[in-house]
Simulated assay, not measured.
Amino acid sequence: MHPNDVPKSYDLTEAGDRYFDGLADKFSRSLYQAPRGELRLAMLDYLLPQMLLLNEQNVLDVGGGLGQQTAWFAKRGHKVTMAEPSKDMLSYAQQWHHDDPTLPHSSITYRQASLQDLPPQAPGPWSLITCHAVLEWLGDPQAALANLSDLLAPGGQLSLMVFNRDALRFSNVVKGNLEKALSDRLEGKGKRQRLTPISPITHNDIVQWSAANGLKIDAVAGIRVFQDYLRHPPATPAEKETLLALEKQYCRQDPHWRLGRYLLYTLTKPESPE
């Protein structure tokens, strides 16, 4: 067992949110140095230019984690404010950003802040906000989307990625956890190092919450539509390339996108009436 994998208990915040102090190394190993993390980043690299109108505008990266998305935007000419509540995660991101000679470091500003703290610390309004894999770790994801809408400028875009509750149910059935799936006991507790989100989200949730906040769903895609259900993971580079090609081909096609492990949305805020 890796020293950092010794079982440890974690507390949720008063708001019922899960932060990730002490887990930066685990995130790096489990999510980004593993096939599922590599595929997730490859699909974002493929989809974001399709789903967003990018013109080097300022970006607010909410819950930026280890800093991958912040770096992606900075390298493409955007000035990015990265907000992350975990001091450990933020320090990890700053260090590897500093060590990357291809990154325009002056384009990145860091804020140790939760989503709820952003109105006074990074009020905007912002023409582009990214919030990837954050809402599912919050006690009240519906309120969080309302907060993001308030930060968004009229005509602005929100790139939102959430952990798909329906995919989690399907995955549990595939694994043989039939009673768990039938009783819909899918949420993680957020107390240990396991990374099952405490508030997995359905597409219908996003449809309803977006409408309630006056946001329009411009585009949607599934991230990791097939990978998590494979009986045998790709064993060769050629098989990995074939899987990536499959993911790219079907990630925006109905019904396949609906079972993506993550759902990626572009939400827009209508222009103010004249």
Rank of each mutant, 00 (worst) to 15 (best):
Ser30Ile: 06
Trp72Glu: 06
Ser91Asn: 11
Arg258Cys: 03
Gly214Ala: 06
Ala146Asn: 01
Glu274Val: 12
Pro123Tyr: 09
Leu41Gly: 08
Glu239Phe: 04
Leu44Phe: 14
Asp88Arg: 04
Leu52Ile: 01
Lys189Met: 12
Glu247Ile: 09
Val225Trp: 13
Arg40Tyr: 15
Ala71Cys: 07
Met1Phe: 10
Thr109Asp: 06
Glu247Leu: 05
Gln50Ser: 05
Trp257Leu: 01
Gln57Cys: 02
Asn4Gln: 15
Gln57Met: 00
Val59Arg: 00
Pro270Cys: 04
Glu271Tyr: 02
Gln249His: 09
Ser114Trp: 10
Arg40Trp: 08
Ala93Ile: 15
His132Phe: 13
Leu267Trp: 03
Leu178Ser: 08
Lys180Trp: 02
Gly139Glu: 11
Phe226Tyr: 14
Gly65Ile: 01
Lys216Ala: 06
Asp254Ile: 09
Cys251Trp: 05
Ala167Lys: 06
Met89Asn: 08
Asn4His: 14
Pro255Leu: 00
Lys248Trp: 07
Asp218Glu: 10
Arg29Val: 15
Gln116Ala: 14
Arg185Phe: 05
Glu136Cys: 13
Trp137Arg: 12
Tyr250Gln: 03
Arg165Ala: 13
Leu44His: 15
Asp11Trp: 02
Pro101Phe: 07
Leu195Lys: 03
His203Cys: 01
Leu244Gly: 04
Tyr46Met: 05
Leu52Lys: 03
Pro141Met: 03
Leu151Trp: 08
His97Tyr: 12
Gly156Gln: 03
Glu84Cys: 13
Ser106Pro: 04
Lys26Pro: 02
Gln208Thr: 11
Glu179Gly: 04
Gly188Phe: 11
Gln227Phe: 13
Leu128Cys: 08
Pro125Gly: 04
Lys216Gly: 02
Asp228Glu: 13
Asn55Met: 01
Pro141Lys: 02
Asp88Met: 07
Arg29Asp: 15
Pro119Glu: 07
Glu14Asp: 13
Ala42Phe: 10
Leu48Asn: 03
Cys251Phe: 08
Ile217Gly: 00
Asp25Pro: 03
Ser183Val: 10
Arg258Ser: 02
Lys87His: 12
Ser28Cys: 12
Lys79Ala: 13
Gln157Asn: 11
Gly139Trp: 12
